[in-house]
């Protein structure tokens, strides 16, 4: 394990590679150190999202009907398209790292550009979806209204109780539960979208650096580390897509 090897003063021996920072022995140790640091970051990001996803599981366990109703109201064809777009952007990102490893500058720039465009398409579709939720009064705590078919009246009479000081109680319980689902939907997809926006900004920075020949087949660590981040964002979506959009489509008879 190169990280555990005793340090050798390469300045003294005169074999220091120009692309190795002074605190590292060689390219491999430098690469392993960067990778480990990036993985530490990725793993803590995994923990960050897992807290929200466990919250999702608890409420899905408590409110199964509301999650089916809420999920089936989401746009499945559009989100499937978006899933394919994001997976494609992961592929172009992997190919960008591949081009960087081989030192193909133009191919690197083209693949980074493709990743940026695909990421932007994903975010554009997301904006359209959010706008659609706004138009249908599905923003929790802002304009949330959920029309229930048959259960409204039988639960509705409880709202006349004088002790119901909480205005939220005027809604039937199913609507409240669906509101929880939409709250989780916006928090999870919102946190994911913020990661995408940050990623898009970093792609632009890397493209500028690549344009000015900052990278070489020996030094492409920033591109590879950013690739890890981008693939991680993809993995989050791999879980969000079935958890939010595919809750028992069979039970609700499709949408």
């Amino acid at each position: 394990m190169s990280l555990a090897t005793p340090t050798v003063d390469t300045h003294a021996t005169g074999h220091h590679h120009p692309e190795v920072r002074h605190q590292f022995d060689d390219l491999e140790q430098q690469h392993d150190s960067y990778s480990l640091g990036m993985w530490a970051f990725v793993v803590q990001e995994v923990m960050f999202f897992s807290g929200m996803i466990v919250c999702y599981f608890i409420f899905r366990y408590k409110y199964p009907e509301a999650f089916i109703a809420g999920s089936n109201h989401l746009n499945l064809p559009l989100s499937t398209f978006n899933t394919v777009v994001l997976l494609s952007s992961s592929l172009t990102m992997a190919l960008a790292v591949h081009a960087a490893q081989l030192g193909h500058k133009m191919r690197l720039l083209q693949f980074l550009m493709a990743t940026l465009i695909l990421g932007s398409i994903f975010l554009g579709v997301k904006v359209y979806e959010y706008k659609d939720k706004y138009d249908h009064n599905l923003i929790p705590g802002y304009n949330f209204k959920w029309e229930t078919e048959s259960t409204t009246t039988e639960h509705g009479e409880a709202t006349d109780e004088p002790e119901s000081l909480n205005p939220a109680l005027k809604m039937p319980p199913l609507a409240q539960q669906v509101e929880v689902f939409y709250g989780l939907y916006f928090i999870l997809t919102g946190a994911h979208a913020i990661h995408m926006v940050i990623g898009a900004v970093i792609i632009l920075i890397i493209m500028v650096l690549a344009w000015y020949d900052h990278f070489s087949p020996n030094y492409y660590v920033p591109i590879e580390m950013f690739g890890l981040y981008w693939h991680f964002v993809d993995i989050v979506w791999v879980f969000l897509f079935p958890l939010l959009y595919l809750v028992d489509r069979a039970a609700a008879g499709g949408h």
Partner: peptide, 16 residues
């Protein structure tokens, strides 16, 4: 699949 191949973990050190 993504972690092993796109994120190169399959080809990385045991520490990673």
């Amino acid at each position: 699949l993504i972690v092993m191949f796109f994120m190169h973990v399959r080809y990385n050190s045991h520490l990673i």
